[in-house]
Design a protein around this nucleic acid. Structure first.
Lengths: 151, 151
DNA sequence: AGCTTGCTTGGAGTGCACTCCAACGCCATA
DNA sequence: TATGGCGTTGGAGTGCACTCCAAGCAAGCT
């Protein structure tokens, strides 16, 4: 494991460019959270959090002296990002791939960029499809609304 | 094997986003299609079409004198709608529920409207989430773009 | 007549993303 | 010292949405 201060500074290079708006406010100045706190912040289950770690979707999580997980703010940032990726419908395997690239360091910037750009295109397509669907729904809803009231 | 140019046309995923409305035009004036024609129109597999019928997501499909399915235009319309609902992430069970309401006739207009309105809210939320995700992706992508070129 | 193609069925299998289980450890409070 | 609460693990189980299989039938072509 890397333990140099430099490594700590940009331990997860992905985090440098992320300043996410927080939906689950974290206590200020704290940087060690139990798994149940993370459950409360993220809405994920403890099972899922452990499973993410097992499959390599999470970096190694710090442990207390008794072996319990202590999540740090950068882990929560990463979880926020993963949750967003999941919402796009990206398969977990692809997210794991991205996580691997992050672990491999700066040499993978280009590949990470390509991966995210492909995801970006997927998201745009998905939004377009959803807007299409919305139009169909609106048409049907207004049909039911008028038919329901005029008879 | 199919040798139509259409098969070649949608080989590249890039074309998908430039072909929004009807990717598989139906022949004019026809109203009886074999299962394999419907496969070509919808992109669903024959397995899935039969499964949809078994679980009650499709109405009873007409049969030829030999017992083979003959889909009609209204069946294709229904499949288009189902496909849109599926894109919203609606569980199949909910779609089956809607199909049941349709079979039960006009008395269920109000309930159908409520169901679609709830779906509509889901779709709007989903679009908002995706836009959020898009913002995050753009931030990261531009980070990788500048970092990748400046070093 | 023989062969190929397309379609039929019920039931079993697959892949994904969790989700749960049993057995156990640590530790604070009563 | 005991009880409750929170945490740990590997492995097995679950639910969803397909997906495939084997065996068979009917029609069309040579």
């Amino acid at each position: 494991m890397q333990t140099t201060p430099a490594a700590t500074e940009h331990a997860t290079p992905a985090d440098i460019c992320s300043a996410p708006p927080r939906r689950h406010p974290r206590p200020d100045g704290q940087d060690r959270y139990t798994i149940s706190e993370v459950v409360a912040f993220t809405g994920l289950t403890a099972h899922t959090l452990r499973w993410y770690e097992r499959i390599g979707l999470m970096p190694h999580i710090d442990r207390s002296h008794t072996g319990q997980r202590r999540y740090r703010n950068r882990d929560l940032d990463w979880l926020d990002f993963v949750t967003k990726l999941r919402l796009t419908g990206m398969p977990v395997a692809d997210m794991v791939r991205y996580a691997e690239l992050v672990r491999e360091g700066e040499d993978t910037y280009a590949e990470r960029q390509a991966l995210l750009e492909s995801t970006r295109r997927d998201v745009l397509n998905r939004i377009a499809e959803l807007r299409d669907t919305l139009a169909v729904l609106d048409r049907k809803i207004s049909f039911y609304a008028t038919e329901g009231t005029t008879r």
